[in-house]
Amino acid sequence: MKKVLIVETNVTRYQGTKDPTGLWLGEAAEFVDEMQKNGVAVDFVSPKGGFVPLDPRSMKYTDESIMQIYESQDFIDRGLKNTLRPDQIDPNDYAAVYYTGGHGVMWDFPDNPELQKLALTIYNNGGYISSVCHGIAGLFNIKNEQGEYLIAGKNITGFTTAEEILAGKKSVVPFLNHEVAEARGAKFSKKRFYSEYAIKDGRLLTGQNPFSVRAVAKLLLNEIK
Rank of each mutant, 00 (worst) to 15 (best):
R214H: 00
S58D: 06
E179C: 00
V216N: 03
L166M: 11
Q116V: 00
A96K: 14
G126P: 12
G127Y: 12
S131H: 05
N144A: 08
A198Y: 04
S212N: 15
K170N: 14
A181K: 01
K187Y: 13
Y61H: 13
P110E: 15
D93M: 06
L23Y: 07
I224D: 00
T62N: 02
K170Q: 11
A217G: 05
N38D: 14
E145Y: 11
S171Q: 12
W107H: 09
Y128N: 04
V4R: 00
K190D: 03
L80I: 15
F159Q: 12
V40Y: 06
L80W: 02
W107M: 07
T12V: 10
Q208T: 02
A29G: 04
E196R: 15
N112F: 05
V172F: 04
Q68V: 03
W107E: 02
F159R: 04
K143N: 05
L80P: 02
D63A: 03
D63C: 03
D33S: 15
I199N: 02
N10K: 07
L84I: 06
G79K: 04
I69V: 10
N82H: 11
K190W: 09
K48T: 04
N222Q: 12
F211P: 00
V105S: 06
Y14K: 08
D90Q: 08
T161H: 07
K200F: 00
F44D: 03
G126Q: 12
S212P: 09
G168I: 03
K143C: 12
S131M: 04
E71S: 14
Y61P: 00
P53D: 04
L5G: 01
T161Y: 04
Y194S: 08
G22W: 02
Y123F: 06
A41Y: 07
T62S: 08
D111V: 05
A167N: 11
T17S: 11
E148L: 08
I129S: 01
I66N: 07
T121Y: 01
L23I: 13
G147Q: 14
